[in-house]
Design a protein around this nucleic acid. Structure first.
Lengths: 199, 199, 199, 199
DNA sequence: AATGAATGAGCCTTCATTCAT
DNA sequence: AATGAATGAAGGCTCATTCAT
């Protein structure tokens, strides 16, 4: 029954299963048995493909980061004005593929994991720096050099906070509300800058 | 060795140890053995006092929520104007006792735990509703009925996001930066409401 | 609160509690904590009185054996004919104080315990020999020297079997049925011995 | 070391080991470690095959019941007259494979277990009803409708009692004596029924 | 390629038992 | 007299991981 060239598909199944399992449990404390079972194979095969549990986790984490990256890059490509570039990043954050409870729970799990795992931290660092510089670049023409870093970090933190609340609070914001909140925050930054009336 | 009347102190030691351990690991996947060891006793004694691991966790969670509550209540008592009340909540959030890496990691762990544990969710719900209504009440005179909910939720999400970034990102904001970001966000809300009366 | 001279009553409480607990669980795998709790005291006190768990068990066993012995002795004293002596033993076996599910379960537990515990075996041996010789003595005039041992052993085994079935089988015999079965068995032995004198 | 297709043999080893261990201890309070060790494998493997300790116990119990059933069925098949059928049941009860100390101790342990475990009770019920109806059917032609139930229950109880005594009393009956006692009891029933037609 | 067999390590929990008070 | 404090040992069970097949 072993189909030839099944490896990539198998690996992908495992990663998807790992993501779902981690998201549901809200923790890395999930067994390889459960992940493999969900992916329709034996635990032994999961080890065969990934070597050990840590590798499964790291690959799953990388997959999640890449997916978000792709989502953002994709939208950024189609943006032409600075404002559209900022919107692209905001919209990518709250796109359906990312902004669902289980996925966000997985995000947080990986955040936490990065606190105590060097490889996870490294992985995280790369992507989050890229995201930040994207945001800074997009905002600079809109809020000016002096404010750009503060604006980017505030907007970034707000996005993170909305994520957390969506996943974890009953009655948290849905995607539309989250986007609106970001837009409003952005607007306030813009109006403070351009009319000649900052502080 | 058995000192009499030691129960409260022992329970407190265990809770502190649990908080530290969970914060360091960034997960509930910590053994009672480690917690008890850190608290200077045998695992069996931990079970004697708490019954099971879940109880240790729930009590630790409650302790953290209560500490934050106390911090906030304390500052709110000393506030007289609406603005001071909002500041009180912001300051409580970034007070030294709460705003350190391990404590925040513990917060996130409990957030995640609340996704899959009924008792944890209940506990969380009570406290987070109280905090939100405090914030809404404090903001209402400042931003008006129409904006108050959005303002509270944005500010709340921003606080959460700053938390996450402080704990988890190298190069995240320190307490002073976080406070400043919140104040700036608040200012922008105020100036949008009554243009003549900011600061 | 320590009443003076409470020791005998305390010990008795513990024995009763142990008997009930063992009978309910159908095993010696019961904790001293449960026994002591049922007797209204702390486990530590139980150890204070009995030394260790084995002692609790042995004393409980002895208590049960003594109670049965007393029941039998009592009835034997009031019997004047051989037949009445046999009936006394049968009746003692099925007296209310002995013939209830939990007590019988305890009997069996002790039987089994006697297989692997020397002291329990010794204890058991003494009492069961006495009972057997009582039965043999009572039967001798009724069935004659040649048959007496077989009759006693058959009757004894039958009693044991009825015990087991009462305790353990749903739809097992009640006390009256058990007594009747023994009487019938006895009758058949008698009529076999002196053909002219049955019933 | 991992041989393929080892499951049935392993399960059987475990069941045999469990039976021996339980029989020796005279209780279910035996560790899986001991059982597995005796069966030549690690405890983890025992859990792999059976899931949990209860399952090991239930399967062991079922094995014992089946073995007895097979023994009886086998002999019943070869019996042609009613009397031979009764003898078949008696003989099955005291066959070497069943009538040894440890096995009987295990029987009693399971009896007791059936008092507090639903699945054990169910299992027991099925087999003991079948045995009883076999006995009743075999006896009916010999002792008549009126007496058949009493005769079956008396004979059944006697068998149980002889079991207990063989296992637990030093100086209890051996197989031959036990068989003889049952035969004698049966004879007395027969002669009471149709005085001219015994044997 | 894929899996069942196999295990050592570790975890939660219970328990008998001791000790100070 | 009576109990809470305290623990070492043990038990059931899960898990990551390896190895033949």
């Amino acid at each position: 029954m072993p189909r030839i060239g099944a490896e990539p598909a198998r690996r992908r199944s495992l990663i998807d299963a790992a993501l779902a399992t981690i998201g549901e449990h809200g923790s890395l404390d999930v067994s390889v048995k459960e992940i493999a079972g969900r992916a329709g194979m034996s635990p032994a095969l999961a080890f065969h493909y990934f070597g050990d549990k840590d590798a499964i986790i790291i690959h799953t984490m990388r997959h999640l980061l890449r997916e978000f990256s792709a989502e953002a890059t994709d939208r950024l490509k189609r943006a032409s004005t600075p404002r559209e570039r900022v919107d692209a990043i905001i919209d990518a954050s709250f796109a359906a593929s990312q902004f669902d409870r289980k996925t966000i729970a997985a995000w947080l799990v990986f955040y936490l994991h990065a606190c105590s795992s060097r490889p996870a931290a490294r992985l995280f660092h790369v992507y989050s720096r890229r995201l930040r510089s994207n945001l800074v670049d997009a905002l600079r023409p809109l809020v000016g050099d002096r404010e750009v870093v503060a604006a980017a970090d505030t907007l970034g933190a707000l996005i993170d906070g909305l994520y957390v609340r969506h996943a974890l609070r009953s009655g948290g914001p849905d995607a539309a509300e989250a986007r609106r909140a970001c837009q409003a925050c952005l607007e306030r930054h813009l109006s403070a800058y351009s009319p000649g009336a900052s502080q």
